[in-house]
Design a protein around this nucleic acid. Structure first.
Lengths: 115, 115
DNA sequence: CGGAATCCGGATTGATACTG
DNA sequence: CAGTATCAATCCGGATTCCG
């Protein structure tokens, strides 16, 4: 796990694995959603509360995409009022090391970015 | 470094460090550019060759943004034909662990994503 | 020649309102 | 509560053009 990326040779004519990863977690919202799902199941509403700047539309859309990619599970409880719970699938959990690195980096460099 | 992200408590009313990180590497192209710059200096043209699908415009734009964020260095050689070299700054190099995780993840899950 | 700037059509995203 | 619908704004891609 401590291989140095400096030693990795880019293969010609082959999709870079970094790109493969990015295909799945493209954009800002997806990673943020995964972050808030990292520990436990969350309802639509809870997620929205934790990401005040995402719109309902985007949240709904990104959740759908993540579900289609098999990264999160979506469970609907047929109740009134409706209740839908989202959680990381096992596949999604495999992204945790990435989330971890993003967290640590942000934590370390937060001060530099204060405007 | 092996702290478990499960133990991290989200603070209310404070920007999540993950978000801080995402502010800097937002979008797909930036990370890919950083990936190709991870080892050595590259010219505009070389980067474009390694990322066949990026347009000149996007490449130029993203490089500029990365430069403004202090993540890469841009050196112009006043020659004809012109020559511009891009490389990771020290700040940019601090992102390598993130690139590394993305690479490993992509490497591991590539097979699942073949269509 | 390598790289940046411009213009334009199409895709993504955002704001707001509304529904099962 | 958990989403859609609609429309405006913004971003992206492609082609072209410009400049040193």
């Amino acid at each position: 796990m401590n291989k140095d990326i400096d030693l990795i040779i880019d293969k010609e004519n082959e999709k870079c694995p970094v790109e493969t990863a990015l295909d799945v977690i493209d954009g800002k919202w997806k990673i943020l959603i995964l972050w808030y799902l990292r520990r436990d199941t969350k309802r639509f509403n809870e997620l929205q509360k934790q990401m005040p700047k995402i719109t309902q539309k985007m949240l709904s859309q990104k959740l759908k995409e993540l579900e289609l990619d098999g990264i999160i599970n979506r469970v609907v409880y047929p109740e009134v009022p409706p209740k839908v719970e989202y959680s990381l699938s096992d596949y999604g959990k495999s992204l945790k090391p990435i989330l971890k690195q993003l967290y640590f980096w942000g934590e370390k460099h937060k001060k530099n970015k204060e405007i």
